[in-house]
Design a protein around this nucleic acid. Structure first.
Lengths: 199, 199
DNA sequence: GTCTATATTTTGATAGAC
DNA sequence: GTCTATCAAAATATAGAC
């Protein structure tokens, strides 16, 4: 509603309204618990046909949504990487982004953290090959080579680090904590960073 | 198939066969991607009616499964707690249990870690009120009072700790690592414990 | 009492009228 | 080209026959 879209491509109006409605529903009820009828009503459309016109099928709608969010994340990560030389600073920037998103666009973060993309995406083995994840693993790899991060498997380091971060954000998104995400950021960053920092 | 059930109640044969088949399918394909027909065939039943006879509906079947796994975990945690006085030892025992389960009964762990129980369980707000989770949070709380664990919100400590553990196990279960879970246990324990340990 | 067959419902997708 | 109406498929649940 009041949150701006992250999509950098084709803000064609009707499509974005559908995508936003779908994002909200998928994020809160899940892919299978959301029908096209639900999306139609949430988007205030006059007919189901409009959805089929813009996105051929429900799967393609969800895939487009995933691509949007994924691209947007990738671009933000690239920006952060460009502005910060050290791996620790880059990771700090990414953490800041995620905590900010949690407060400002919780549905986007719910979609990222809780939706199982394999429910609608069947091409190859996605999940670990997600572009944003790949970029972060490369950052970690560089951090290891630079001596900032201890010498463990980058995938494991990723798992440790974002295990702490993601679980903290999930708690906030579930409404189990009484403060906004921002309040827990410094603490969580420290705990996460310590799992992978050298020395 | 070759793994023993954790269920302590009513091993009535046919029910258990259905539950095991459902567990495997739910764990690997998800709740909505598994039809009763799939379960019927995986369990080598002669008719769908048999499932409806034992469990009135698909939801109730899934709920029964969840209750079984949840109870079994709770009992194991109680055993561990009884045998170890210190919080750190209790958590260590729980971690050992989870890594062992990952190697010996991967489908059970997949069910625990990757199935969204809200897909079939709609009673109240479950998820954080899961009995096993509650027990662990109490252990953490005791650890804080005993000065073993630093003084943070127990829910946050739980999130940090099992963020590291669960993510590591998910990597193993996804087949992204080349060794068995056991190989990564000591490392993961240390990383997880350091996120909450005092000093 | 166990299985075959069917009914019902939901929902994704399409075809046709204005 | 947009909406109404319908179709088709799938899957859950039930009813009835042997």
């Amino acid at each position: 509603m009041d949150q701006e879209t992250e999509t950098t491509q084709t803000p064609s109006g009707e499509q974005d309204i559908i995508l936003q409605a779908a994002l909200k529903l998928f994020a809160n009820k899940g892919y299978f618990n959301t029908s096209l009828l639900d999306i139609k009503e949430a988007a205030n459309l006059q007919s189901l046909q409009i959805i089929h016109h813009h996105f051929k099928t429900k799967q393609l709608l969800a895939s487009a949504l995933y691509a949007n969010v994924s691209d947007s994340l990738s671009i933000s990560i690239d920006d952060i990487s460009r502005r910060n030389p050290k791996a620790s600073e880059q990771l700090r920037g990414i953490v800041d982004l995620l905590f900010t998103l949690t407060d400002d666009a919780p549905d986007v973060m719910r979609f990222i953290l809780t939706v199982k993309i394999n429910d609608f995406l069947h091409e190859e083995k996605i999940g670990l090959e997600a572009p944003a994840q790949n970029k972060i693993i490369k950052i970690i790899d560089a951090g290891i080579k630079a001596g900032e991060i201890r010498n463990i498997c980058p995938q494991l380091a990723y798992a440790y680090f974002f295990g702490v971060i993601d679980n903290t954000l999930k708690l906030v998104l579930a409404g189990s904590l009484d403060k906004k995400a921002d309040f827990y950021q410094a603490q969580a960053w420290l705990a996460a960073w310590n799992t992978i920092a050298k020395k």
